[in-house]
Write a protein that binds this DNA or RNA. Sequence first.
DNA 1: ATGAGCCGTCTTGTATACAGTTTGGTTGAC
DNA 2: GTCAACCAAACTGTATACAAGACGGCTCAT
Lengths: 232, 232
Amino acid sequence: MLFMDRKRSDIIADDIEGLIFDGTFADGARLDEVQLAERFSVSRTPVREALQRLALSGLVDQIPRRGVFVRQPGPVELIEMFEVMAELEAVCARLAASRISDDALARLESTNARCAEAVSANDTDSYYHQNELFHALIYEQAGNGFLQQEALRLQRRLRPFRRMQLRARGRLKQSMAEHQAVVHALKDGDAAGAADVMRSHVAVQGEKFHHLLGLLKTGGRGNAGGGAPSTP
Amino acid sequence: MLFMDRKRSDIIADDIEGLIFDGTFADGARLDEVQLAERFSVSRTPVREALQRLALSGLVDQIPRRGVFVRQPGPVELIEMFEVMAELEAVCARLAASRISDDALARLESTNARCAEAVSANDTDSYYHQNELFHALIYEQAGNGFLQQEALRLQRRLRPFRRMQLRARGRLKQSMAEHQAVVHALKDGDAAGAADVMRSHVAVQGEKFHHLLGLLKTGGRGNAGGGAPSTP
DNA sequence: ATGAGCCGTCTTGTATACAGTTTGGTTGAC
DNA sequence: GTCAACCAAACTGTATACAAGACGGCTCAT
């Protein structure tokens, strides 16, 4: 039964993560070990290991002798996470301004071009992907592997919420413009400028998201996938 | 056999962490599950869970079907981690400049006073402790719980190396002066100033450490009590 | 003699069995 | 009727048993 390169528990951890993100397991839901074991046709052992992984990454709360519960970050924590993301990315941009290679600059621009295509086609999914690539490229060009890993970690953690927020009308074009401003600053080697532009570029996502949250609450709209409030 | 509030695996994880930090398990050493199980008089199960925790926190490398190995960060990675720490703390200081409470400022100064006492008594251990408190206070006053957690996490990770570096002659007094500069900037609400002072205060630790590493290598000194990385 | 292929052992990964705690229901007393 | 205490079922944490890779030594062929 064992024939793979990756451990069973790793796959299960990713799967459960997906189930949390797509809403199968709602906030506060209890994740029963035996149920999950049956669902994945394995014993409790790999499931337990997977749950511990998720607990350490902060996706679930593990209360001793009580079980593990889905723990979606509340509005306050989300704002906080976006603030940290903005600062991390600002640091990446600042460092990248002096360390980025010409080749990477070219890749940045080509990624941006694909972003523009996506905007024209109004293809949110493609834009979303290219956007992640754009940011990941800058993490890489910061020339600090540890910083890169941390940035990728947080980017991954915030992924579902960023996706939600990207649907705001008019946001795509604005985001594109900010990307280009970042590239310009990087080209000029303007460290402080790159940091500032990047910080506000990411921070605005958090604010937009905050706004969206407020609308959802007062408006009583259930699902985030549908409605797209207009820009303020 | 079950009578505690904390899980066996948590205690074991902390214990193993300690054994790594105090040099019992050197860099690259293999951590055998059964040996550890015997050492702690438990079965393999809690040991495995502990090892996975350590693997996720980056202290050990877990190679599938091969085992787990102590993974002390090399010089390059350490520099990178200190750079990130410096940036994180700079952000904390910048945010704290506008958010810090008068009460916290008072606590900061009293902590600093205790630092001064420790310097007078040349009590490195006490200084080390008060120093950590000083920084933790600023994380807290950044008013961002997530940022605070991340800063504490990295502070903890770098603890053994900071301790090593603190022994450099004359560093204590210099560090004290920098602390006071930070407090001044915070008092004035000078966000940019606080960030700059804090960044260089932490960054210089990394540089000092780098220097120390060089001495250790050329000097051929064996172990400094903090796990000396061997291969790059 | 040396190198490559095979087998045995050791170790990890998974399954199952067991122990102890928590929780919810039920029953009894006030 | 309500509240509390006790009992039982369920679930988590731990131990043990089993399966399947990986590594080392051995053998055999060139």
